[in-house]
Design a protein around this nucleic acid. Structure first.
Length: 924
DNA sequence: TCGCTTGGTAAGGGTAATCCACAGAC
DNA sequence: CGTCTGTGGATTACCCTTACCAAGCG
């Protein structure tokens, strides 16, 4: 399997806010989509007979519903009770809704107004025609404020515009709470909440070894009265009912209804590569959307396939989105909540002196920080610095109140001048860093603002930074001073949620002696602390004098299951396990929801629930820690998540590649480029490999369990001693040489080849398994050059000055011919470079190739055939085991490998073989 | 007393920085 | 053929938001 290398740019791009934004704006379940696509691919390529099964899945047959209607299938748990069940946690027994609001309308691909068109994610795939809706659910509510779509051009450049701009936002903010998006969670907003008995039973009824995410839609906790909604508009019963409407014509169905049998069947085949290879089949019987994604149109612009650039329209849309984040209602905040202004603060506020409202406008100019991130190298650093500096001007203004007005005029003028630059910025590729509507990563400028406030505050109140930090870390409620500090801090970044600022400051301003790298001792202490106070991260942090959050992260990302953690390349089995766990996790979510609905509506719960958008969105909620747990902890949550993203990307690239292949794209790069000289050098070196080394290599290759030959971790296979003798190139070259014994090995599974070779070694060179290259005895296999020089010097005699290069070459050729002759006599095959080594290495045994069971020596095969060594092998139990494991390899190997013929290599055309080998090496 | 707001804490999802191995260029 | 350097995968440390709950306030 040749998996396309991931573009770093694209990877980085995908890792940034863009991806987050895309996923939120395109809540189509990408994982679900990928899983389905993988399923489809396998079905199409391998298990065609399962097509009807898929149809059944899509149709959500009644029997499946009936099956799901029971408690969580026990077969999902595998009897593993060690995993923490979220349903056992009382605190989670409430409805969640926050993320659901953000993920709206997962299946509408109409070219979203927020700029996250599907074509942005898949530039090679045309957008769904406008208006084409692939589902029957109502379109999502889009708050008015998010429709503002302010672009950089919208940012005012003079005072009046600023005032107007802010008034506009104040107006929006002052309006009644915007109607909430139609909530999908019918339990929270239903006029008839589940009765208490249902809820009481819930805790024990919901059992899943998957720790569901918080957004896993637990039913409401038992309560005497329905939970009152805090903010926003309560969905009306009609709206709720709308969510329950069945999908028309089955369109928009994207849930994957798999039972475990299907999952197991899905991953029965260990040839993962076929799964991806099948991506090239454009005739997969998949639903319209997936089908459209898999079929590349003839007019695809290949130039777009390999770069992550967005077209201008997309950039514009995204810029609009970035600048459309809700600005604050600054004046109101200042007037209403500033403790400094109402005299409640018993201490001095650095802002209380001179910050007027106009000044505040400068401070919080919406989107201003974004401008700093939307610069590019094309603009040059001066502009960037200018923007960055201006972002902090309000502070300097405050320090010099007398100059404020003048400075402000200058600022406005500067802004006006910059408007042209801003337009230019808009056209350039913007940084993926954005501040989302709810905040996002804090910028350096924002941090600096807060730092300056801290410094000013400490100066004004004559307190130390440590004292300030202790105030920040204080969790005592109703501490007026602390509260006032946070009020002031919030005024520095009033467009950020107050709690967000508070949490950011708690992370930034602290007196903990250490953050960062953890020592082994600290890890041990952390383990003990966690054992003593599980899940009490604040207390644990106090014990270790570190931030509780850091302790939590260190534990979950590093220490948890560290004894089982595999940090090597993913094996085929692990990948299968990952996919299975993800699908099971989603199924668990679905079952959970189904059970909840049955509890509410009874067994007659509408089937349409399974088809709703919400259901599909739930499938996106994969708890990666649970996935990791179900893999036995051999991979961390981050490893699982990253691998899944990688698999999806590979899958997507394969789809692209298939289209490229279909068009005969000549520019396609060769599957693998080698460094010929490096491999040639390694090839020389591995000529000294003994039978034991070869056997070790083959065993190490098989032990690697790499999914494909390309995935073999050449550097790390073998034990330490083996690695010290043979580097990665050596091992790869040796493997390439060994494969030459198996005609047609290029089209075979590498494992079958390796097993066949291993068997042949056992049969042919069993007594030589202990023979390994010992650098101390045989010399350094790689240190040949000095010897060669020494020999050449000796050959030339004392009169070095007369030894011309011509004579040297002649002597070398003569020696070479002589060696070749000797080599032929010994019936051993050695290519020219090998002969060179042999000839030059006086301390090496001249018959070293006789120590290899697989020197491409047909004579050896002849010996084996004659029963010289192979006869007694079958008596060995160990070998029986090997043979039992290798039955398939045997058949493949013997069928092809035995056709080498019995003619000794000495009688063959060595040059021809050499040329063939070089060709193979260079094109391997 | 009650409804609402605010704030603390844990949990979950996510990413930038960094390391490391590999491979191509010179 | 040794060295430099770019690239991509994987890990680590850190970040931010959300959910839940409890205290406080009017």
């Amino acid at each position: 399997m040749e998996l396309p290398a991931k573009s770093k740019d694209k990877r980085r791009k995908s890792k940034t806010g863009k991806r987050q934004s895309e996923e939120e704006q395109h809540p189509i379940d990408q994982e679900e989509e990928s899983a389905r696509a993988l399923l489809q691919m396998r079905e199409g390529a391998i298990h065609d007979s399962r097509a009807p099964y898929y149809q059944d899945d899509l149709a959500a047959p009644q029997q499946l519903i009936a099956k799901s209607s029971s408690m969580r299938p026990l077969e999902l748990t595998n009897g593993d009770d060690s995993v923490v069940r979220s349903s056992e946690k009382p605190r989670n027994h409430k409805t969640r809704r926050s993320k659901k609001k953000k993920r709206s309308d997962p299946f509408t691909f109409t070219g979203s107004e927020d700029g996250n068109d599907e074509s942005e994610r898949y530039p090679h795939i045309p957008s769904t025609p406008p208006g084409q809706v692939l589902h029957s659910s109502p379109p999502p509510y889009r708050p008015t404020i998010s429709q503002s779509a302010h672009t950089l051009d919208d940012i005012p450049t003079d005072d009046e515009a600023v005032a107007s701009y802010m008034q506009e936002y104040e107006k929006e903010n002052e309006s009644a709470d915007p109607p909430a998006a139609p909530e999908h969670d019918i339990y929270e907003f239903s006029q008839q909440p589940p009765d208490a008995s249902d809820q009481e039973d819930y805790g024990t009824a919901m059992h899943s070894t998957y720790k569901l995410p918080k957004q896993a839609y637990f039913p409401p906790k038992a309560s005497a009265k329905p939970k009152k909604r805090k903010r926003g508009r309560v969905s009306t019963p009609d709206e709720v009912d709308d969510q329950e409407q069945p999908l028309a014509n089955g369109e928009g169905r994207h849930t994957l209804n798999l039972d475990l049998g299907a999952i197991n069947e899905l991953f029965d085949d260990d040839n993962w590569a076929n799964m991806f290879g099948a991506c090239q089949d454009n005739d997969m019987p998949i639903d319209p959307e997936l089908h459209s994604m898999s079929a590349l149109p003839p007019s695809v612009d290949l130039s777009q396939l390999n770069n992550g650039d967005e077209n201008a329209a997309q950039k514009k849309k995204r810029n609009s989105k970035q600048n459309g984040s809700a600005p604050p209602s600054k004046r109101r905040r200042v007037e209403e909540v500033s403790p400094a202004s109402n005299g409640r603060v018993p201490f001095y506020s650095p802002y209380a002196l001179d910050h007027d409202q106009e000044d505040l406008q400068d401070r919080v100019l919406p989107g201003f920080e974004d401008l700093q991130r939307q610069t590019s190298p094309e603009l040059g650093s001066p502009f960037i610095e200018d923007i960055a500096n201006r972002g902090l001007e309000y502070l300097s203004d405050r320090a010099s109140p007398g100059q404020s007005a003048q400075r402000k005029k200058e600022v406005c003028a500067s802004k006006a001048n910059d408007s042209k630059k801003l337009r230019a910025v808009k056209e350039l590729k913007s940084s993926p860093k954005t501040i989302s509507k709810n905040g996002g990563q804090y910028t350096a400028a924002e941090a600096e603002k807060l730092d300056k406030f801290r410094d000013a505050y400490c100066d004004a109140n004559s307190i130390s930074i440590e004292k300030f930090n202790s105030h920040i870390q204080s969790t005592i409620r109703n501490n007026i001073e602390v509260k006032a500090i946070f009020d002031e801090l919030h005024e520095v970044l009033p467009y950020r949620p107050r709690m967000s600022v508070q949490k950011f400051c708690r992370r930034r301003y602290h007196n903990f002696p250490a953050r960062g790298t953890w020592t082994t001792e600290e890890d041990e202490m952390l383990k003990k602390a966690v054992a003593a106070k599980p899940n009490q991260w604040k207390a644990i942090g106090e014990m270790l004098d570190r931030m509780g959050e850091d302790c939590r992260d260190r534990y979950r990302n590093y220490l948890l299951n560290s004894e089982n953690r595999n940090r090597e390349a993913w094996t085929n089995e692990e990948v299968q396990s990952l996919c299975k766990a993800i699908l099971e996790c989603r199924q668990a979510v679905k079952d959970e929801r189904r059970q909840v609905k049955i509890e509410k509506y009874g067994e007659d719960a509408p089937e349409s629930d399974f088809d709703s958008d919400q259901e599909a969105q739930d499938m996106k909620l994969v708890n990666w820690q649970s996935v990791s747990d179900h893999m036995g902890g051999v991979r961390s949550r981050l490893q699982c998540r990253l691998k899944w993203l990688q698999l999806k990307e590979w899958e997507q690239k394969n789809l692209v590649q298939s289209a490229i292949d279909a068009k005969g794209f000549e520019g396609r790069k060769s599957i693998k480029t080698k460094n010929p000289w490096r491999m040639k050098r390694a090839s020389k070196k591995v000529a000294n490999m003994r039978t034991g080394d070869q056997y070790t290599l083959l065993q190490a290759i098989l032990d690697s369990s790499a999914a494909t030959e390309d995935n073999i971790p050449w550097k790390t296979i073998g034990d330490v001693e083996f690695q010290s003798t043979w580097n990665s190139a050596d091992k790869k070259a040796a493997w390439t040489n060994l494969k030459l014994h198996v005609p047609g090995s290029d089209s075979m599974d590498y494992r079958a080849t390796a097993k066949g070779l291993r068997k042949r070694i056992l049969a042919n060179g069993r007594d030589e398994l202990d023979e390994k290259w010992d650098p101390e005895v045989h010399g350094d296999v790689s240190a040949k050059k000095p010897k060669r020089k020494r020999k050449a010097k000796e050959m030339q005699g004392d009169d070095e000055e007369e030894a011309s290069g011509k004579k040297k070459r002649a002597a070398k050729r003569a020696k070479k011919l002589q060696d070749k002759s000797e080599s032929n006599k010994s019936n051993e095959y050695v290519h020219d470079s090998d002969q060179e080594e042999v000839a030059d290495s006086g301390d090496e045994p001249q018959d070293y190739n006789r120590h290899t069971a697989l020197p491409r020596s047909d004579a050896a095969e002849a010996n084996m055939d004659a029963g010289v060594e192979g006869a007694s092998i079958t008596d060995d139990n160990q070998d029986k085991e090997v043979y039992a494991d290798d039955s398939e390899a045997d058949s493949l190997f013997n069928e092809k490998g035995d056709n080498d013929g019995d003619q000794p290599m000495a009688d063959r055309d060595v040059d021809k073989e050499l040329a063939s080998r070089v060709h193979l090496l260079q094109h391997a």
